Computed example of a mutant assay.
Amino acid sequence: MRIFSRRYLSQTVDQRHGDIPLFVCCFTSGLLDSVSFNNWGVFVGMQTGNTVLLALSTASLPETQHHATATTLTSLGSFLLGAYLTFVISRWSGSLSRLFVMLSFCIQAALIAVAAALTTAGLVPEDRNGGGQELGNIRIVTALPPLAFHFGMQIATSRILGFNELPANVLTSTYADLVGDPKLFSFHWNPKRDRRIASVFLVLTGAISSAWMMKRGLNIYGQMWIGAGLKFLTAAGVWLFMDKDRGDTELGRKPNGEPMKKTGA
Rank of each mutant, 00 (worst) to 15 (best):
N256F: 04
A236R: 08
G152D: 07
A228P: 00
N50D: 11
I226Y: 03
L56G: 13
L161Q: 09
R253E: 11
F100C: 07
C106P: 01
G132M: 01
H150P: 03
M213A: 11
A83Y: 05
F105W: 07
V170Q: 04
T69W: 12
R98H: 04
K244M: 04
F151E: 04
I155H: 06
F23A: 10
E63F: 06
G18Y: 10
H66R: 13
E258G: 02
W40E: 02
S210M: 06
L147D: 12
I20R: 13
G30Y: 09
D245L: 13
H66M: 14
F23N: 08
A116Q: 02
T234L: 05
T119H: 10
I3V: 03
I155G: 05
N137C: 06
W92N: 14
A236H: 05
R16M: 09
T205G: 11
H150G: 12
G45E: 11
M46A: 12
Y8P: 04
G30K: 03
G94V: 04
S199W: 01
A265Y: 06
G82Q: 07
D243L: 02
P259L: 02
M242T: 02
L9H: 08
V35D: 14
G131M: 05
F201K: 06
G257L: 02
R159T: 04
L240Q: 12
E126S: 14
F105H: 12
W189P: 10
M242G: 06
I112H: 05
G217S: 09
W239R: 07
G264T: 01
I197F: 11
I140K: 08
Y84H: 15
L76C: 10
R91V: 09
V203A: 03
L144W: 09
A110W: 02
W92L: 15
A109L: 00
G94R: 14
R6L: 04
D33V: 00
L85S: 05
L135M: 01
Q154C: 08
S57M: 05
R16Q: 14
L96R: 15
E258H: 06
M46N: 15
L123R: 05
G180D: 04
T64Y: 13
G206L: 02
R6E: 15
K231A: 06
L22Q: 08
T234Y: 03
A265E: 12
S29C: 08
G206Q: 05
W212T: 09
A176S: 09
A265T: 06
L240G: 05
G82S: 13
C25W: 04
T86N: 14
S10V: 03
Q223L: 11
S75P: 00
Q11G: 08
N137R: 08
N256Q: 02
R193A: 03
G130M: 06
M242I: 06
T74D: 14
I220Q: 14
Q11H: 08
A211M: 09
Q47D: 11
S104L: 02
S34N: 12
R246W: 00
A198R: 04
A59W: 12
A176P: 08
W92A: 09
T51N: 15
S29F: 01
Q65H: 15
